[in-house]
Design a protein around this nucleic acid. Structure first.
Lengths: 215, 215
DNA sequence: GTCGCTATCATACGCAGGTTTGGGCATACG
DNA sequence: CGTATGCCCAAACCTGCGTATGATAGCGAC
């Protein structure tokens, strides 16, 4: 019965071998790739899956708690979607898990369909997140290729300053600003100022010394 | 003991008069303005507070459930932060509430401090949300003031097209595009193309007929 | 019908953006 | 020491943008 819509890799972290086994057999029977870990440390030590993936994580673990780990993951640039499961859950724990960005929070025992639904949602979430992450990584690589001066010029240009104003602010001649600006456009592979502005927005690049009138 | 950091108005919706009364006295003693309702319908019928505000909402209500109401609120442009409270909560209910965007989910009975903390967090959230809402409202008003043609020109301009290209796409002469473009800048109160691009981003204005190479 | 708004276009001027060519200076790396 | 890189500037040139000024035309409101 392989009716999986979005195939992918599910990493299961649970310190109970029996739980790992039953979840594993369920997911595998549906066509998912499954990797099993007994602790968050073991998971971190392993390689990341290349394909779409998610995490099924027990809240109560011997080492680091599943909640703490979820919160830690949320602080990363690229967070894997997490499905939390627990045998002894309560409402405050659920609140904390969901706040940390968990896709779902399932109290044991749960139906097969509940877990499958949560895993499916998590893999679907990873689809979009992964694409966005790749884009922002590429953008960051381009931005890192700029020289310090070019970054300064870019920050001022995307705030809407004219070359003349940029030159005054950086104590340069206008022609120099034009050259830097041209370099920025080429290195960032921006085909228009509008493009560059959107890239800067996504990178969080802006001039701190200016108080903007809008946004 | 008025040690409130962010004063504001708390609307309490609970069908139990006793609960309303006790929550009310607690919040009032801390300096909050409190309004009491016995149903979501009664809340909707009343005026919205002008100041910073939040909602304390019982999950189990006689009419519309608190969860449904929270989900409905979340679909609005400007959603009031909600603190959910319940006497008979479980984990799936908590998951649903938090997914709907609730700030907190408190099982009864709760400590005074728990409610106060949640209300404080909700009011703080409303601070930022309210400012952002005002800005986007203002922006929308300006955008609505554009003529259809001006909106078309704006959409193409912020994607990075030159006047010449915009003219070709709309089958106009370049000078006409320039005039429309000037009108757009003036009506949107944008001081630079960069400003206009950011405004368009926030408004969700973009040209659908073009496949963008980035973002 | 007249007023006002929208939309269209033309000519022309001034300013801003962008590139090329060419040059000078400092620093870092081998 | 030579080379590369980053940074700076200038003259010249082309293109694009923005704004007058002026003119025509359709359309809805009063």
């Amino acid at each position: 019965m392989t009716e999986t819509l979005t195939p992918g890799c599910v990493s299961v972290i649970d310190d109970d071998p029996h739980v790992r086994g039953s979840i594993s057999s369920l997911l595998r029977s549906c066509g998912y790739e499954v990797r099993l870990y007994e602790s968050t440390a073991a998971y971190l030590a392993a390689d990341r899956p290349e394909t779409r993936c998610c995490l099924v994580l027990d809240v109560r673990l011997s080492g680091e708690s599943g909640l703490e780990f979820t919160e830690k993951l949320a602080r990363l640039a690229y967070a894997v979607p997490v499905v939390l499961i627990t045998g002894h859950g309560d409402i405050p724990m659920t609140v904390r898990g969901m706040r940390a960005g968990a896709v779902d929070f399932l109290p044991k025992p749960f139906d097969d369909d509940q877990l499958l639904g949560a895993v499916e949602a998590a893999l679907l979430a990873d689809l979009g997140r992964r694409a966005e992450f790749e884009r922002s990584l590429q953008l960051q690589r381009q931005y890192d290729g700029l020289t310090p001066r070019e970054k300064e010029v870019m920050a001022l240009v995307v705030t809407g300053l004219m070359n003349k104003q940029v030159a005054a602010r950086l104590d340069l001649s206008e022609i120099t600003v034009k050259i830097h600006r041209g370099n920025v456009m080429r290195k960032m592979v921006a085909q228009s100022l509008a493009d560059l502005v959107r890239m800067a927005e996504q990178l969080g690049v802006r001039d701190d010394s200016i108080h903007r009138y809008s946004i």
